[in-house]
């Protein structure tokens, strides 16, 4: 013992490995700072350009042709409504589908097939949104037209489905195109979460005599719950801000209603900006940027809500 004591005292000066640690800390914190600064700059730009529109009087706004005499809030409201409606339609379609695909890849398909499917879904994410817009316009629209007609004829007693008018340039078609667009990111995220289900818990369930589906409901889905919500929010974030596909597919309108099969009822914020910006004057541009600020806040609020939902049952999440 005595012999050891001399060489094993605590050394003075820096321990080996300190330099690498310092570099890593520097890199990671500057990356963190960069993202905050970038976000701040974007927000500052939005606010700075939106202020003139926010402060403009009714008379000044009346000169902006595309506002048709409305106040700023009156102008944004239907756009925000259309944005949320199209995104919600997209989520309602995409999330269950994604869960199904992710489950198939993670728990049902033989390994080879699972891999192939995984790549295919990832590939879908690499397609530019203009292509999705074209696809929606030329392929999906003619395809869903008869289906919508049937829905309207047979389930028209349910008001949202009433009054279909062809061609299907309605928010339902836009929502479906959005659904296909956000499918890859949602599926990929959920798949990763499902693959991380602890084997321990899957075996616990199987050993109780659960069938595979029961095991999935008992162990996989609850474990993946917060991941599913996060994935849905990622997809929603993308759907809220998507421009091209909506611009190309939807016949715009400024109503706030749930007639999802009628054309000329709705419009999204992003598509509207793209639509009006080329011909907007100075104040007009500011108004459009103000709607952009609104979209920014909307997306932010959606993410906050998701956080809140996830944290509410954090105790039961399996993370502790």
């Amino acid at each position: 013992m005595a012999a050891v004591a001399g060489s094993e005292t605590i050394r003075r000066g820096r321990a080996p490995g300190r330099v690498g640690n310092a570099i890593f800390r520097g890199v990671s914190s500057s990356a963190g700072i960069t993202i905050v600064v970038l976000l701040g700059l974007v927000a500052a730009f939005l606010v700075y350009r939106a202020v003139p529109a926010l402060l403009a009087t009714r008379e000044e706004l009346a000169d902006v042709g595309f506002m048709r005499g409305q106040s700023l809030l009156g102008y944004v409201a239907p756009l925000a409504f259309g944005t949320v409606l199209s995104s919600v339609i997209a989520l309602v379609v995409a999330v269950p589908l994604s869960i199904g695909i992710a489950l198939f890849i993670s728990h049902y398909a033989p390994r080879r097939l699972a891999q192939g499917l995984g790549y295919l879904v990832d590939l879908l994410a690499a397609i530019p949104s203009v292509i999705f817009g074209l696809w929606g316009l030329q392929f999906l629209q003619p395809l869903v037209g008869p289906l919508f007609q049937w829905l309207s004829d047979h389930m028209g007693w349910f008001p949202p489905f009433s009054g279909y008018v062809g061609p299907a340039k309605n928010i339902m078609t836009a929502g479906l195109v959005l659904a296909v667009m956000i499918l890859p990111i949602i599926t990929a995220t959920i798949r990763e979460v499902f693959l991380q289900t602890p084997r321990l818990h899957e075996e616990a369930s199987l050993a109780l005599g659960a069938t595979r589906w029961e095991m999935i409901r008992q162990a996989v889905l609850p474990f993946g719950r917060s991941g599913i919500i996060s994935a849905a929010m990622l997809g929603m974030g993308r759907a809220l801000g998507e421009t091209m596909a909506v611009l190309m597919v939807l016949a715009p309108g400024f109503a706030m209603n749930l007639y999802v099969l009628r054309p000329g009822q709705h419009q999204s914020i992003a598509a509207n900006i793209a639509n009006q910006f080329p011909e907007a004057g100075a104040l007009g541009a500011d108004v459009l940027i103000a709607t952009g600020l609104f979209l920014f806040l909307l997306t932010f609020a959606v993410n906050l809500a998701a956080r809140w939902v996830i944290n509410r049952r954090a105790e039961f999440s399996g993370a502790n």
Binding site: H201, L208, G209, T211, F223, F316, S317, G318, A319
Partner: peptide
């Protein structure tokens, strides 16, 4: 599935469902 309902199992590491 029927066999496992008759013959239960306890594992090396405790594995209650965390959710």
């Amino acid at each position: 599935v029927e066999v496992r309902r008759q013959i239960g199992m306890v594992f090396q590491r405790p594995n209650p469902f965390p959710t």
